[in-house]
Amino acid sequence: MKELIKTEFRRNLRSLILWSSIVAGMAALMLLLYPAFKDAFSQMEEFLSIYPEEFLEAFGMGEGGLDMSDFYGWFGVEGYLFVNLIGGSYAAILGGSILSKEEDDKTIEFLLSKPISRDRILYGKGLVVAINLLLLNTLVGLVLLIAFTIYGDLNVPVWLLYSYAPFILQMIFASLSFLISVFVIKSRKVISIALGIVIGMYVIDLISKLTDEFEYLKYITPYEYINAVSIVNDETIKPLYLLISVLIITVSFMSAWFFYRKKDITA
């Protein structure tokens, strides 16, 4: 299995480098813009007050929300979303293709003729997804470490949460698309569905914040679980959300395993 993990990692390395650079680059870009906007915020507050409260809340800037003149608040509003959207997309694509690609390209026929069980194949590939996502977030974490140290005091819990909370969201998207890929063989189809979930969940997140009526929707969107407001203001992820996240990831992965071990590979 060591060789499978090594080979999978090597085969996915180029896309890992590409996506990590994009995500970390976006974070760096947003943080570079911070000094230019910092002084504008006194006027901005006046400007923002013409917007309805729900609208500001949706972007984490409402009452009890984030302070944009503080760089932790600035990143929470301007950078964190990109990290989650782009990082989430990468996770969905990686999780959705790492298994289905073998069937789509018909290389699974080779792999399954080798003495390695389906359990180990799933386990090994799942591990490569987790490792890749951890690496991506570590790179983003490095960018944040540099930026936060330059701009002022480094708040270690906030820095760590900003760096690794997206890992939870990414793992949710990755495990969901991993499960889908057991049933939908065409990689391209899996990826479309998975990206649909990444975007769809963001829309649900917005709706849950914009309206009181649909506030309960926040429990089903991973963007809420790792909300920047609670990272900065409470320096924590709510235990309930953490529990839901772990449940989704575990159940998706176990279901994928349950169905895959009995599946006819007819590709």
Partner: peptide, 22 residues
Amino acid sequence: DTIEIRKMVGYIPSEVNFYDDM
């Protein structure tokens, strides 16, 4: 005992599909 079988079997498929990038 599929693993035991695959340990002792060499297989040549009709359509060869291997990892293109390797």
